[in-house]
């Protein structure tokens, strides 16, 4: 069977400061503040459509993306605000998009599930389960063929584990040794159905291992663990050694979408996961190791909150798209 030879690509080194524990804390705090604000705006009737919040999963986006350069690619999913923020998305434009304003990434026409940020290598959030998996693999194919040194990360939920397209993409990524990370954010539920009810096999990691892809479980509530696993996987990708599969166990604190009462979850289980809140967990660690004081951390969180609040307030005052915007960008020039 044809297996591509390892091609070592040039280095694209991520910004070191972006990966420091305090930077991770800031990223997670920003995502949390962002989502809390989105929730409030949504419940206030200011956001059209559906939104799926990332609260609880912040460590995954923050930990993985900290290891990427701005030019690296990510493919996101329907619960994608966290990825957009972590990848350097502009808060003003993100809120504008969610609020349906013309200044948004897609002229306010796409909303939560259609946010694309080419300047930061974000291939988009998507409303199709598994929709961005081949897109990330394809971007990795381009990176490999053009020897750009870029890496692509495909974020997807556990629901994608049973989509044929994920296997097809993993198979091709393995055959061609593409510089891609498959990052499964396993929050235990696909919509309202438990993963255990619909997913065969003893171990999800076997699905990657069957294609000889290095596959490992990661505590998705521990941002430092996620970062460490991602660092190894990204280095492997950049060295031309092909794909990796990371399964990050995590929990969505706010259910499938805003308004989800979560009757299908056990209270005790939710409580246990909440105790492992990735942001509070990191704070405890940093304070215990004297790498930061609680006061410093509170200041970071406050800054994040005010930046988010400012962006949200500003976005609310923006203009909606005009009727002329309806037909814009249907075809490229």
């Amino acid at each position: 069977m044809a297996r591509a030879k390892a091609v070592k690509s040039q280095k694209a080194v991520p910004n070191k400061a972006a990966g420091s524990p305090l930077a991770l804390y800031r990223t997670m705090a920003t995502i949390r503040a962002f989502e809390e604000t989105v929730q409030r705006l949504f419940l206030g009737g200011h956001i059209p459509g559906l939104v799926h919040l990332y609260m609880g999963q912040e460590a995954v986006a923050a930990g993985v993306i900290a290891e990427l350069a701005q030019t690296d690619f990510i493919g996101s999913h329907h619960r994608g605000h966290g990825h957009c923020v972590a990848k350097g998305g502009d808060l003003d434009k993100l809120f504008a998009e969610l609020l349906g304003k013309r200044a948004g990434y897609g002229l306010g026409r796409g909303g939560s599930m259609h946010i694309f940020d080419p300047a930061n290598g974000n291939l988009g959030t998507t409303g199709i389960v598994g929709g961005s998996v081949p897109l990330a693999a394809g971007a990795a194919l381009t990176a490999k063929l053009r020897k750009t040194g870029q890496v692509a990360v495909s974020f997807f939920g556990d629901g994608v584990l049973n989509q044929g397209i994920m296997f097809e993409a993993m198979n091709m990524a393995a055959i061609w040794q593409l510089p891609v990370l498959f990052v499964c954010e396993n929050n235990g539920f696909g919509e309202f159905t438990s993963i255990d009810d619909v997913t065969a096999g003893k171990d999800i990691a076997d699905r990657g291992k069957a294609f000889a892809i290095p596959s490992e479980h990661v505590d998705g509530m521990d941002v430092l663990a996620v970062q460490k696993a991602a660092r190894t996987a990204v280095a492997r990708a950049r060295d031309g050694k092909g794909p990796s599969f990371l399964i990050c166990s995590t929990w969505r604190f706010s259910g499938h979408h805003v308004g989800d009462k979560q009757d299908y979850k056990e209270d005790a289980e939710t409580k246990a996961w909440r105790k492992r809140d990735p942001i509070a967990q990191l704070a405890r660690k940093l304070v215990a190791k004297k790498q930061a004081t609680q006061k410093q951390l509170d200041a970071i969180a406050d800054e994040a909150k005010s930046a988010v609040t400012k962006a949200a307030e500003a976005a609310r005052k923006l203009e909606s798209p005009t009727p002329a915007d309806l037909m814009e960008h249907l075809y490229a020039e």
């Binding site: 096999g201 069957a210 000889a212």
Partner: peptide, 20 residues
């Protein structure tokens, strides 16, 4: 089979991964 390719070292690894 030049153009039909499977990354699995052994074909059976695939159904096995799905506990068959």
């Amino acid at each position: 089979r030049e153009t039909s390719m499977l990354a699995a070292d052994r074909l059976l690894d695939i159904p096995k991964a799905l506990k068959i």
